[in-house]
Design a protein around this nucleic acid. Sequence first.
RNA 1: CAGGCUGGUCGGGCAGUCGCGGUCCUGCGUUGUCGGGAUCGAGGAAAGUCCGCACUCCAUAGAGCACGACGUCGGAGAGUACCCCGGGGUGGGGAAACCGCCGAGAGGCGCGAACCUACCGGAUAAAAGGGCCACAGAAACAAACAGCCCACGCAAGUGUGGUGAUGGUGAAAAGGUGGUGUAAGAGACCACCGGCGCCCGCAGUAAUGCGGGUGGCCAGGUAACCCCCGUCGGGAGCAAGGCCAAGCAGGGGCGAUUUCGUCCGUGGACGAUGGGAGACUGCUCGUCUCCAUACGUGUCCUUCCCUCUUGUGGGAGGGACCAGCCCCGGGUAGGCUGCAUCGAGCGGCGCGGAGACGCGCCGCCCAGAGAGAUGACUGCCCAGGCGGAGAAAUCCGCUGGACAGAAUGCGGCUUAUAGACCAGCCUGAGGA
Length: 128
Amino acid sequence: MQRRFRLSRSDDFKRVRRTGKSYAHPLVVLVAQASEQKQIRIGVTAGKTTGTAVHRNRAKRLLREAMRPLIPALTLRLAQDNASGWDLILIARPALVTATLEDTRSALTNLFTRARLLQSVPVDESPE
RNA sequence: CAGGCUGGUCGGGCAGUCGCGGUCCUGCGUUGUCGGGAUCGAGGAAAGUCCGCACUCCAUAGAGCACGACGUCGGAGAGUACCCCGGGGUGGGGAAACCGCCGAGAGGCGCGAACCUACCGGAUAAAAGGGCCACAGAAACAAACAGCCCACGCAAGUGUGGUGAUGGUGAAAAGGUGGUGUAAGAGACCACCGGCGCCCGCAGUAAUGCGGGUGGCCAGGUAACCCCCGUCGGGAGCAAGGCCAAGCAGGGGCGAUUUCGUCCGUGGACGAUGGGAGACUGCUCGUCUCCAUACGUGUCCUUCCCUCUUGUGGGAGGGACCAGCCCCGGGUAGGCUGCAUCGAGCGGCGCGGAGACGCGCCGCCCAGAGAGAUGACUGCCCAGGCGGAGAAAUCCGCUGGACAGAAUGCGGCUUAUAGACCAGCCUGAGGA
C-alpha cells in the first residue's frame, strides 16, 4: 500500500475516530468517515494491547498487505457513484497477531460490505 | 567415550512472483499523488535505560563547604577524547563508563578445569573519634552466676575482696600446649607453635611474598553504620537545539461618501453609470464575486407569545452581514534542519606482544522513518526433533528455526534467547 493512500496526519486520525462510524470484527475494527477529497485514505493502528513492537508491526503489515488489492475495487465504486471520498482507520485487535493473510483479507471484505463501501464480496472469498 | 569448565562464532540458505521505504540516474505532445532503470534497506541483543562520552541549550570570577559515587597492584584503552596558551607547536595539562578489558597478588571456594570477592583503603597500624552487637548469658568491652582462693565477722551460712584457670550461655568470652609462679590464678614470667606490628635482607615496577631479628602487642566484630583518608563529579536533554512560518489575537498603515433616472417622501429603495478590493492569472483584456463608512434604538432572515382589522404593531429569543489589502515583531499548528557515512568507523593480510592491544599495508563507504519502510506467498534445500525399517551404514514419512524491530550517534553493563558449530582445558573410564 503506497504512502499516498495513507492517512498520516494526527488531526485526521483524531477527527475520524471522533466522528466516524465504526464496525467491529474479532480481528480488526474499521472506522469510516466520508471526506471532501475524492480519494480513499487509510490509516492503520495497533495499540499497546496488541503486544510488543514486533507484534504491532506484524499486525500493521498484515493489514496493509491485505488492504492493498482491495483499493482498486473501492476507488472503482467511488468513481461509479460519483460519491465523496472516504477516510478509513483500521485498528488491529490482539487476535490479529496469530491470523493469516487470508483471515485478515476476509475480515476486511466483511467489514467493507457491512459499511456499504463494497457491494458484494469477491468471488472466492466469503465473510465469516 | 561419558560428564564438566572457559572463551568464541552463528542464529536458517537459495530461487521465483507480488509489494514497501531511501538515494541516484533517466523519459515526456500529457510535468504527474506520472512512468522506467540502478542501488541500498534491522540486531546480537536494535530491548531494559543502569551508566559514560560526543553533541545541544542553560548556569558558571575564583576557591571552599555540603551532597553523591568509587577504593589491592601493574598494564591496555590513551597521552586518545577534551581543556589551556600561541600568529605559528616537535607546547602545557589530561579523562570517564554504578567495580568493564588483560595480567599479577591476597582472601574464599571446588577433586579439578574453573569460579567468586560492594567478602580487596582505614577499627593501635599514615592520623582522630562516635555508635551498634538481637536471643541467651553474670558480663558483648566492661563484667564475678556457679566454682576456686584468702582474710575478716566464732561457726553453718552469708557479706566484702581476689581470680578468667574450670562449668554454663552464645555466632563470638580475650591465642594454643607445656612449665614456672601463686592464697587461688592470669603472657604475670619462660620455652615452642600461631597471629599482628616494627626493623633489616632478598625477589618483584608494584600489590605482595620469603627469610632473619625484634616488641608480650594478642581486649573481638561491624565502615553494603556515622565517620576519617584518597580520587572523581555543575544541571537538563534530539520532545536538546537552530531556521521558516498559515490561522487567530496584538501594533501600525492604505482604503471608495460619483453622477443620472424612477418611486415613496426631510432620508431611503431600485436600476444604470462610474469607483474600490480580491480571484481566475505571471502580464494585458475580459469575466465572476464582494464593498458603499457602518457596532447602531443598524439592516436582513427566522422561532415563540400577545394584540387581532389576518395585516399591522409590540415583547422575548436565535442566526447572518457591516469589506478588503499591505507592513511589523513575537510566535501556535505545520514545514525544514539537527539526521545518516569520514568516524576512538568496518573488513582482510602481515609484524610485535604473555595478553588486553599496538603498528604497517591494502580495500570499503554500509538502513535511516515521522501514524513510522525492511513484508507476503510458493517451491527446493539445511541444522535439529519425532516415528518407522535395518545388525549397521543408511533409507522413508511427518515436523521444523528462539528472543525479538532501528528512531541523534558511539561505548560499557544488565536482561531475553529454539538450536547449531569451533577452540582450549579439567575429571573419570577404557584401549594402544
